[in-house]
Lab assay of single mutants.
Amino acid sequence: RRRVRAILPYTKVPDTDEISFLKGDMFIVHNELEDGWMWVTNLRTDEQGLIVEDLVEEVG
């Protein structure tokens, strides 16, 4: 499975499927959606939700 790491922190918009995260958080990518969004699991918090790919980098 594809893994990505947050390069910046992010605070979710209330009442959306987004998740908040810290710089350095690792995610497993489940689905890549339109307009650069990804459905992921945050490995630190075990939370699932949407993040935008501009805020993460690939992990080898």
Rank of each mutant, 00 (worst) to 15 (best):
M38G: 01
K12H: 08
K12R: 10
D54N: 12
V29L: 04
D35P: 07
E53D: 13
G60S: 11
H30A: 06
D46K: 14
D25T: 02
V40E: 00
W37R: 13
M38S: 04
V4H: 02
L55E: 03
R3P: 05
G49E: 00
D25M: 01
E32G: 08
T41A: 05
I51F: 00
V59K: 04
R1A: 15
K12D: 03
L43T: 14
R2C: 10
L50K: 14
T16C: 05
T11S: 10
V40I: 02
L43Q: 09
L33T: 10
E57Y: 07
R44W: 03
L50G: 04
I51E: 00
M26K: 06
I19L: 12
I7D: 03
A6M: 01
V4N: 01
H30T: 06
D17L: 13
A6Y: 01
L33K: 11
E53K: 15
T11H: 09
L33R: 14
D15V: 05
A6I: 02
M38V: 06
E18S: 04
G60F: 14
P9M: 08
I7N: 06
L8N: 11
L50H: 05
Q48T: 07
R1D: 15
I51W: 00
V29W: 02
R44P: 00
S20D: 08
D25H: 01
T45E: 02
D17H: 11
R2G: 08
E47T: 06
P9Y: 06
P9D: 14
D17Y: 12
Y10S: 05
W37Q: 08
Q48N: 10
H30V: 10
E47M: 07
W37P: 03
N42E: 01
P14D: 11
F27Q: 00
D35Y: 13
K12S: 11
T41C: 13
N31M: 14
V59C: 15
P9Q: 10
E47H: 06
I19R: 00
E18W: 04
E58P: 10
E57N: 06
I19A: 02
K23A: 13
I7T: 09
E58N: 12
K23H: 07
R5E: 04
N42H: 07
V4T: 04
I28E: 15
V56M: 10
R44N: 07
